[in-house]
């Protein structure tokens, strides 16, 4: 069984950045906004977290800075889409282009700089339990934070009044506005939160998963995170499922290759996570009414009180 724990730990590492970015985007979309700039914000968070960590040696500060950078880039998106009513889909894509360039610019002096990974939790006694110990009690702070955040988001959306308001803004902003809710301000907070989470996902990449900075190191994970929100049918619990399914399948196909099952060309094994995600989505989408209940009705549409 000594192979199980490292495999589980690898899956957690592969899934955590996806979980952060996807749970943030879920809140954004629940408020009725579609921000396709996740990839750009992840890179922004990754580069700033790395720079701060190298310069100050303070990983807590680095994590906060990564989140702040993601939020700042999301703020830019908010100014354009919420303030100036620009098209959300196009602005999000432009934010990704911008983020790739900006992160490369900021990180120029940091390519090839090594960094010690975030420390892992180590509780004598507990961490030593076989399999369970290192998996449950041997992770770094961001992994635990990803679960805390997911729990909080689920609680916030479905158990608090503010969460209800946010969802109603996503459902019908005009009705929410008529009742007197500040639609734009609520969406702004959601967008900033989404940016901060994408920034944390990026910070996890550059501080823990592969502690280094290299241009475009997110390698498309922002896009996968976007797909996972849809996969999860906008429910926080399913985001965890999706992120871990995707991370797990990525690892599984690599393991399959390693076990010499290369009678199947590697390209087809590389396809497995993508195809499996589609298949599972089809299975859970068949009940049309439940999807409609969760998909925010006003997603992607510009809101202005004049209608």
């Amino acid at each position: 069984m000594d192979i199980l724990a490292p495999i589980l730990i690898s899956i957690i590492a592969a899934s955590t950045p996806l979980l952060f970015a996807a749970i943030g985007e879920l809140v954004v979309e629940k408020s009725g906004v579609l921000n396709l700039g996740v990839e750009g914000m992840m890179l922004g968070g990754a580069v700033i977290a790395f720079i701060i960590s190298v310069e100050t040696g303070n990983s807590a500060l680095a994590i906060v800075a990564g989140a702040a950078m993601g939020a700042m880039m999301a703020g830019l998106f908010a100014v354009l889409t919420l303030g100036l009513l620009a098209n959300q889909v196009a602005t999000g894509l432009a934010l990704t282009l911008f983020g790739i360039g900006l992160s490369a610019l900021l990180g120029q002096g940091y390519v090839g700089t090594p960094l010690t990974a975030l420390p892992k939790l180590n509780i004598p006694g507990l961490t030593d339990i076989p399999v369970l110990g290192p998996v449950v009690f041997g992770q770094d702070v961001l992994v635990y934070l990803s679960f805390v955040v997911t729990g909080l988001v689920a609680w916030f959306l479905y158990r608090t009044r503010a969460g209800l308001v946010l969802r109603s803004v996503g459902e019908n902003p005009h009705a929410a506005h008529a009742i007197g809710f500040p639609v734009i301000r609520i969406r702004l907070f959601a967008v900033l939160f989404g940016g901060a989470m994408a920034g944390l996902g990026g910070a996890y990449l550059s501080l823990s998963y592969t502690p280094m900075w290299a241009e475009e190191m997110s390698a498309g994970r922002g896009w996968i995170a976007l797909a996972l929100v849809v996969f999860a049918t906008w429910r926080p619990g399913r985001v965890v499922l999706g992120a871990y399914l995707f991370g797990g399948l990525t690892l599984a196909q690599l393991h399959l290759q390693g076990m010499g099952s290369s009678a199947i060309p590697s390209q087809f094994l590389n396809m497995v996570p993508y195809i499996a995600t589609i298949v599972v989505l089809v299975l859970i989408s068949r009940d049309a009414t439940r999807i409609r209940m969760n998909a925010p009705a006003s997603i992607g549409k510009v809101f202005h009180p004049d209608g």
Binding site: L76, L80, L84, L85, A86, N87, A90, T91, A94, L95, L97, F98, G99, I100, G101, L102, A104, L105, Q108, E215, H304
Partner: peptide, 26 residues
């Protein structure tokens, strides 16, 4: 000019184009 700068510039161009649309309808 490094590619990074041209990427930032391209992003800015798009932001301005998208933002200025507001004047058509508002």
């Amino acid at each position: 000019l490094p590619l990074a700068v041209t990427g930032v510039f391209q992003g800015m161009l798009l932001f301005f184009l998208l933002a200025s649309d507001v004047l058509v309808h508002y």
